[in-house]
């Protein structure tokens, strides 16, 4: 007899282990809970941590959205969607509002998430102190003792050298006043979306075998100095060349024909959604 394929790829024992680790992660916001990361049918570092979280969460009633660098159609996002769809049969969507589970790499969607949604972030490097301390046994002790002067020094040196912090993405945050945490390689623009989020946020690192979490309504502060306050990427005075959006994360591009620098939404599904709505409005207008 042929064994039935496993729902959501993982066997129930693996899911159980991930679920136990996830509950601890939620109970200790920002603390990296070790787990026995499984082999997934993708290379580690391509979102296997996030994927395992998604597999441990997903049920028959879920609707999944997968984002990679703001886009739903990248190779990575497509292969994750394929795997989940093939092993669960659940629908996938590009619309943030329709999704119950959102797995993302590099972005938090522009549309504010709700308490009915869970955001899963893929993490390549979960340890925010790794840059200056190679040994896991030492970073664990530093977290235990709340000894974060190294993290502050790192930022301070950047300011001395460049006049500002140079973290492009993955700018460290302080969770609930206790743990310094890597928010995953989201742009600084997205850091404030973690603060007192309505949605539960789970982070998974497959290669490093860590799960951590930001519960809803939890204090998230980006590390900064009083005289050098934290700043997200600045897009003031700029707007999307397609949908005209302002106050969103924009990609800069050089348009060959005009020789001009233009901007467009990084969150492509949000952009498409806005365009669609603008079309609808025009149609309504035209028929009146």
């Amino acid at each position: 007899m042929r064994a039935e394929p496993q729902f959501a790829f993982l066997d129930e024992g693996s899911k159980k282990e991930i679920r136990r680790a996830t509950l601890k992660a939620v109970a200790i916001p920002g603390y990296q809970v070790p787990f026995a990361s499984r082999e997934m049918p993708m290379a580690r570092g391509w979102g296997t941590g996030g994927l395992q979280l998604t597999c441990s969460l997903v049920g028959k009633d879920d609707v999944l959205k997968v984002i990679d660098q703001g886009a739903d159609e990248s190779v990575n996002a497509v292969s994750i969607k394929k795997l989940i769809r093939a092993t669960t049969g659940i629908p996938v969507t590009e619309r943030t509002e329709e999704a119950t589970l959102i797995q993302s790499r590099h972005r938090i969607p522009e549309v504010p998430l709700t308490k009915e949604q869970i955001l899963v972030l893929q993490v390549p490097t979960p340890e925010p102190l790794r840059q200056y301390e190679k040994k896991e046994s030492v970073t664990k002790r530093l977290h235990a003792e709340s000894e974060y002067s190294g993290a502050w020094l790192m930022l301070f040196e950047q300011i001395m050298k460049y006049g500002r912090t140079t973290t492009g993405a993955d700018h460290p945050v302080l969770v609930n006043g206790r743990y310094v945490m890597a928010p995953s390689p989201i742009p600084r623009f997205d850091n404030p979306k973690m603060d007192h989020s309505e949605a539960l946020i789970l982070l998974g690192a497959g290669r490093e075998k860590k799960i951590y979490a930001v519960p809803p309504y939890t204090d998230i502060r980006s590390l900064a100095f009083e005289d050098h306050p934290f700043e997200g990427e600045d897009f003031s005075g700029k707007s999307c060349r397609f949908c005209g959006a302002t106050g969103v994360f924009l990609d800069e591009l050089h348009v060959e024909e005009t020789g001009m620098t233009e901007y467009q939404c990084n969150d492509t599904s949000h952009c498409a959604d806005r365009l669609e709505r603008q079309d609808e409005k025009e149609v309504q207008h035209a028929t009146i």
Partner: peptide
């Protein structure tokens, strides 16, 4: 799976 999701949301809230 359903029980887990309820449990997770309870632990988170």
């Amino acid at each position: 799976q359903k029980v887990y999701r309820e449990l997770l949301q309870c632990m988170a809230r």
